[in-house]
Computed example of a mutant assay.
Amino acid sequence: MSIFGYDPAKYHTGRAPIEAAALGLKLRPDQVAYRCNLSTIGDDGTMIDFAGGHPSTERAAGAIEAMHVAFADEGIEFHRGVQYRHIMVAPADWAEAECAPPHDLTGKPAVWPTGPAAPKLQRVMDASREILADFDIDANTVWLWGQGFQPQMPSFESQYGLKAGLVTAVDLVRGLGVLTDIEVVELESATGWYDTDYEGKRDCAIDGLDDGLDLFIVHVEATDEAGHAGNVEEKVRALENWDSRILAGLVESLDASGPWRMLLLPDHATPLALRTHTPDAVPYLLFDSTADGPGGEYTEAGVADLPIVPGHELMGRLVAG
């Protein structure tokens, strides 16, 4: 949200309602959305895998449909997302709970919901164990978190005067596009995993700009997933893929089209040693093909002594020209 140029302090109401928008869900004021992970918890209560073995979307679909059927009479809806990432919609009074993000618990004891709505959530999570046991997936529970009511956001074009597009495999990012009227390009081969289609994403950007869009956002999830997995080889490979499979062809196309600008950055840190998100500031690279910049080192250490820029201000700097 911040990278798109919107202040989270003003617009962020929770992760799940943004992802719900990506699925085409328009929540009523009396409804709250929860992110619903398919996760794996050990017999000793340890969070083994917040992503439940990364089931294919097709395999996950049956489990989510079974959850939907099991709770439909209670006004609870389950909606299929991608791989392990799904959505539960519940009455508004289910919102009052403190829920731990499952990726913060990898290898640690599960921290169950607390607060007024916690017993309702716990009942659903407990019931999911029996339901998921009937399906050929590694996940053995649903994990509910990231709840909120759907935000109202102004369009990107009304904010910045530009027509924008984006490509992503992640519903959170897709949902931001839906809520801000950014053109979301569907790429079937974008997986949200190490095997995503880097060239396909690059070509979506090139085609979108050639077709008249003023700005295009390319999102790749592989580095984040590698960070959560503690997999240094895949994280390095994903970063190298940006150079060899996206930028290598994209820069030449941009050069051929005239002056251009680019903002390159991660949307958060996911250190390999911690295997979860941290609130640390991240480096960014802002490039203008028509002007020499001050240079510098594009690493966390290289920018550690520089002033921190609020993330939602960067889009304004990019489009200012």
Rank of each mutant, 00 (worst) to 15 (best):
L105R: 09
P8D: 08
D305G: 10
K201L: 01
V282Q: 01
I217M: 14
R261C: 04
A16W: 11
M88T: 08
G14K: 03
A90M: 12
G302N: 12
C36K: 03
G302E: 12
L272C: 12
V319K: 11
V173H: 04
F50G: 02
T191Y: 07
E221Q: 13
K201Q: 11
L176N: 05
P29L: 03
Q122I: 14
W94R: 02
P310E: 07
I64Q: 05
P116Y: 01
H312F: 15
G14M: 02
V232T: 13
A60M: 05
Q147M: 07
V218Y: 04
F156I: 01
D210V: 03
A97R: 04
T191F: 04
D288C: 07
D7I: 07
M1I: 07
I137Y: 10
L306D: 14
C99F: 00
K201C: 04
L274K: 15
A60K: 06
I137S: 08
A190Q: 09
D134W: 00
A9L: 13
K120C: 00
A273N: 14
R275L: 06
E98S: 11
V167D: 02
S257T: 03
A21T: 08
I182R: 01
M1R: 07
Y284N: 00
P91T: 01
D104E: 15
G227C: 10
V170R: 13
Y298T: 01
G81H: 10
N140R: 12
L162N: 02
V220A: 11
G227W: 11
A248K: 15
W112R: 10
M47H: 05
L166C: 11
E96N: 14
D255K: 15
